[in-house]
Design a protein around this nucleic acid. Sequence first.
DNA 1: TCGGTGACTTAACGTATGTTATGGATAATG
DNA 2: CATTATCCATAACATACGTTAAGTCACCGA
Lengths: 250, 250
Amino acid sequence: MALLDTVVMRGLTVQGVLSPEDRALLLGLELNPRHISANEELWQERADADMFCVVKEGWAYSYRNLRNGSKQILKFYLPGDIIGMRDFGFTRRLSSAAMINQGVIYPFSYQQLFELFGRSSLAVGIMATAMRQQALLSERLIYLGQYAAHERLAHFLYEIYLRLKRIEAVEDNSFLMPLTQQLISDALGMSPVHVSRTFSMLREEGLVIRDRQHVKLPDPEALARLVEFNDSYIDELLPLTFAELLRASP
Amino acid sequence: MALLDTVVMRGLTVQGVLSPEDRALLLGLELNPRHISANEELWQERADADMFCVVKEGWAYSYRNLRNGSKQILKFYLPGDIIGMRDFGFTRRLSSAAMINQGVIYPFSYQQLFELFGRSSLAVGIMATAMRQQALLSERLIYLGQYAAHERLAHFLYEIYLRLKRIEAVEDNSFLMPLTQQLISDALGMSPVHVSRTFSMLREEGLVIRDRQHVKLPDPEALARLVEFNDSYIDELLPLTFAELLRASP
DNA sequence: TCGGTGACTTAACGTATGTTATGGATAATG
DNA sequence: CATTATCCATAACATACGTTAAGTCACCGA
């Protein structure tokens, strides 16, 4: 299962828009096979992110270990899949990755991806933006999978708080949230009644004050501790190496 | 909140790798404001996908309506966010999108994105690949949020089945799955014990036969009906319009 | 001013799923 | 071949959450 055989690249081939150079670049990603034994780690969360892997043989998976001892698997990778794209645009890995059984992978560097991108800064920027969106999606998946209702709601509110702060829509730890409890329940996969119950709990604990659309988090840090929110990456600029790679001559 | 002010693009600016042309292209996306009223739909699931939106004012959200009447919200969009990237590389929208309150958006076309990409076929291909990965992640989020254990497991098995079929690793509706129930439970957010229980249920219903790593789905279509699996898009080639856009002169 | 509507709260009750524990089958190891 | 570890099945019990329902409060149009 080579990259050129994936649905997407086959589509581009059929449509006749992949130049011979493009095809050569793509094939060039699959030159250095590496044999991996079962259960071997490819990388750990927070390791430097500087390369991807195409899975040639075997199964792998990406996951996050949580404070409470549980772990959430984000994705299983089968032959032909690319591991590591999730981290593109971040300095460090957002999740760990490991082989399940024995297999073969082709590692390739960010540098090679930049060549695929034709060294277009904007392409890199758009891709990084998309991956940040996916990072938020992954966080939510983790919370839906592993945490109880009050943690999910706390996590949700804290995420909104951070995103609003970034666009300067938070003042004195308060913000406007035009969501009904019904909408929140649809987002968090719980019943509207339980959203209400859970808001009451958070209010009693002094973590959230809410009157209609007005929300105040008296102690955002306490909330962050409760939810194990990894906000280190959210406002992170692109890795410094990106500039060098973009400026490097082909 | 303009695109040039987002973390990613600010990073590229700081690093001095955004050319004046790049900046002009990016600014060019935000020329045609459109005022949207509260609760107005931006598009529905399965509509033609041919453009994105930058949110300027107001909140929006993307969601999927499910057969059982519930709905799963995938993401809330705040000012500065781009709506619609999730569908890039697909012919039709994978989820609906609507405004929550009244607001302003800037629509921009795929064509404009292709210009950002410098008309690099490979950049388009990589981006589309990443978005397909995200589509699978979204499906899993929907299932974690809205469905009971046996539906989650059924969905999981059917997804694996489809992905293995694509790489010709399914024979006679059987395949090899090197996963322990512990790993499956970590992926689906349920206890290992309940995974076992649920496998027993599916076996009694004649939907799944399993002996250790050997899995057989006697009637994959029955499973697909049970889980409301939208597999129409998984093996879809890139939209035909992509070739035209890639070939168009700048 | 009044009834109507939608958003929210709280309570009572049922159930899906988690937890803990035990035993059996199979694979791994010496 | 014996021993041990791993994986899995099943049962008994506990609980978080869903469901249904009723009541309060704010807002809105007649």
